[in-house]
């Protein structure tokens, strides 16, 4: 590790965007920018987290986020363990706290946790001695997704301030939406949400966003169009009449995209439902869609988060960071 790396990130955990100042966010994005360059080179492996143990604890299925965190930890030299708790210990009646305490006894330095219940990662963080990164909790927060979205946008546009960002789709159940709303507002962007009222949480305007129920109005003059995944299995008939009707009014296609700025970026946290919330033609538009770049930036952002949290732990020891 290089002791000369100087950055100020005064947090033990990364549980949400709310606790981060614009300076904190900038620190993470700047670090991630370096890793984005590193990740495109031939030699991707560093030893900054050598000796540290990272446990990816997933109470909910995930492929891309877990892989992204795994790769990030490994590229920084940490020992990474993946634990999928979904359907195993929980079914045997073990509580979240029990699981956390059990794993904590194995002395992990960093735990990356995803859980289907809002607030669960926060609860777990109170019971462990290492650092915790929230990899998504219920409908509450998904901070690394928001950071990777911000990094993607900043690299393309050079800034976040002053941009008009439209977040479209299932805002109600989306932790991605909540974290992105907080991050982009904190960085001085204008944020709109676009969805049918059944997919908008009550009082969402109090978060500081403009609310639209019409895509053409919501996308007007936008710099960034962020589409959200529709959880099709629980939507039909309950929140929207049909996928066909949803796509007709709220799916992103060329016609609706025309309302946005000519060079507006198209984003999606994945996995996509093509033909439901986004038209294939638009999703694969190499000039406009940055969906794959989001995935790429995901690894860089997670490396930045892992590194930013690790020194906090080291700072508490008398020796300081090992070199």
């Amino acid at each position: 590790m290089s002791p000369s790396r100087k950055f100020n990130f005064p947090h033990r955990h990364l549980l949400g965007i709310e606790a981060l100042s614009p300076q904190d966010i900038t620190v993470l994005l700047d670090l991630a920018e370096e890793y984005a360059i590193l990740n495109r080179g031939p030699e991707k492996k560093l030893s900054r987290l050598r000796g540290l143990t990272q446990i990816n604890l997933f109470f909910e299925t995930s492929t891309r986020t877990r892989t992204s965190f795994e790769l990030a930890g490994k590229r920084l030299g940490a020992d990474v363990i993946n634990m999928s708790v979904e359907g195993s210990a929980i079914k045997k009646g073990e509580t979240l706290i029990d699981t956390a305490m059990t794993l904590n006894a194995m002395q992990p330095d960093i735990m990356v946790v995803r859980h289907p219940d809002s607030g669960a990662v926060d609860l777990l963080s109170q019971k462990v001695s290492g650092s915790v990164i929230n990899a998504g909790d219920g409908s509450h927060a998904h901070p690394t997704q928001a950071l990777l979205d911000a990094l993607t946008v900043r690299r393309r546009r050079g800034r976040l301030e002053g941009l008009k960002v439209a977040i479209c789709g299932d805002i109600l159940h989306s932790r991605v939406a909540r974290s992105n709303i907080q991050l982009f507002l904190a960085m001085g962007a204008e944020v709109r949400v676009v969805a049918p009222p059944t997919l908008l949480p009550i009082a969402v305007e109090k978060l500081g966003v403009k609310v639209h129920t019409n895509m053409l109005e919501g996308l007007k003059d936008c710099d960034i169009v962020m589409m959200l995944r529709l959880q099709t299995e629980r939507m039909q008939g309950a929140f929207v009449p049909s996928l066909r009707e949803y796509f007709h009014y709220f799916g992103l296609d060329r016609a609706k995209l025309a309302a946005a700025k000519g060079d507006a970026l198209i984003m999606h946290p994945g996995p996509m439902n093509r033909g439901v919330e986004i038209d294939t033609d638009v999703a694969d538009d190499i000039d406009r869609s940055v969906i794959h770049e989001q995935v790429e930036m995901g690894v860089a952002v997670r490396m930045a988060c892992l590194e930013a949290l690790a020194p906090v732990r080291d700072a508490t020891s008398a020796d300081g960071p090992a070199t």
Binding site: S118, G119, G138, S139, H140, R175, R178, P201, V204, K206
Partner: peptide, 9 residues
């Protein structure tokens, strides 16, 4: 309300 919306509950 707003509180539940913020907490994602």
């Amino acid at each position: 309300g707003e509180m539940a919306t913020r907490l994602g509950l």
